[in-house]
Simulated assay, not measured.
Amino acid sequence: MSVIGSNAASVEFIDVTKVYPNAKVAAVDNVSLHVETGKLVTLLGPSGCGKTTTLRMIAGLEMATSGKILIGGQDVTSLPATDRDVSMVFQSYALFPHMSVRENVEYGLKFSGFPKKEINERAMAGLDLVGLQDFGARLPSQLSGGQQQRVAVARALVLEPQVLLFDEPLSNLDAKLRRQVREDIRDIQTKLGLTVVYVTHDQEEALAVSDRIIVMRNAVIAQEGTPRDLYDAPASAFVADFIGEANLLDCTISRVDNGTATVALGPVNLKLPARNLPPGPAQLAIRPGRLAFENAGTPNTLAARLTKVTYVGRHLECLAETEVGQVFAICTDVNAPFKSGDNIALGFPDRAPVLIPAQSI
């Protein structure tokens, strides 16, 4: 049985604001959030949105200007990083190049006052957990990027922190390795029941690893929810376009009856959940993979002329011109005989379009 257990705790922000000296705007503006114990929550957003500042305030590397930060129900707002039971895995890994892998993993334990025997047991258990039990004598320079990342994870895990923080942990890895390491991180988090706050700007990465995602924009929370919530029901054009690809098309809500909107998209009439929107201008967010390819002239479809068809292995990527604008659509039938210049029709299955407010991006 592993000597590494879980000391996981919840994280809560209550009206937290961070303003840097001489800054004209807040880096984080009146943010409230809750990370449940044992869950992996991702802070997702473009550069400068406030996600890394939020992470650093959890760690105690930045102090909140106002508001409260609770870890495990305890107010840690004024505590420095050294007095918070939090470990952070940095984008650069921050491994000591002159120390062996095992010495790197043991480093934090030595400064935490663990007895020598327990330091040895925890270090070996940590390396075993990340699949590097036979690599303890090597130097970091003798490891691949993915292996170095795992050493950084092991070094954080052996301290059994209440909260484990990841700051863009996969950005230095190639695409194939990113997939593998994110699966490793998710497996370890699930196995140990760790509370993890994870920062990334990569939408696919966030969808793959998270229990919940908090999308940030301009220092505030734009939307939060499960990966499926955000993908299937974005609250705004920004979220729709940031969480995966989406066609954003202008439409008109002609009436709303018992929560169902009658929507006109050019010549197409749709019945959709109104999502509390009133009659008038709105937008539709439509995922490229949820459009139906129909024969030209099919009733209640959007006439389209293909301007580009690209084979990318698993599917065809198609650009089409329509009377409501350019539409990007994905055809999963790689043997479909589509080519540039073809006239087709695009249909809208029930789960394809989602109403969002007009001009909300």
Score class of each variant (00 low, 15 high):
M57T: 05
E121D: 13
A81S: 14
A125S: 13
M88W: 06
G67R: 08
V130C: 08
F135C: 14
P80N: 02
K110T: 14
A64T: 04
M57A: 05
Q133S: 15
Y107H: 08
S92L: 00
F96G: 10
K116G: 04
G72M: 03
Q133G: 15
L43M: 12
L55D: 01
C49K: 01
G136F: 04
S100T: 15
E62C: 03
L95E: 09
A59S: 06
F90A: 02
R122M: 08
P97Y: 03
N104P: 00
G108L: 05
V86E: 01
E118P: 09
S66L: 09
K117T: 14
Q91G: 04
E106H: 05
L70N: 05
G45W: 13
A59V: 01
P97N: 06
S100F: 04
D85C: 08
T42I: 13
K39W: 14
S92M: 02
H98W: 03
D134R: 14
P97E: 05
R56G: 01
G136C: 06
N104C: 03
K39R: 15
G108T: 09
I69M: 03
S66P: 04
D75T: 02
S112W: 14
T53M: 11
I119N: 02
K68T: 15
M99S: 07
T65H: 02
G108K: 08
T53H: 12
F96N: 11
K117M: 12
L55V: 00
A94H: 04
M99A: 04
R102H: 11
M88Y: 09
G131V: 12
G45R: 11
P46H: 10
T52D: 07
T65D: 07
L61H: 03
F111E: 14
N104Q: 01
E103F: 10
E121R: 11
N120M: 14
S112C: 13
D134W: 13
F90V: 00
T82E: 15
R102N: 10
A59H: 00
Y107G: 07
T42A: 13
G131Q: 07
E103Q: 14
T54R: 12
R102P: 10
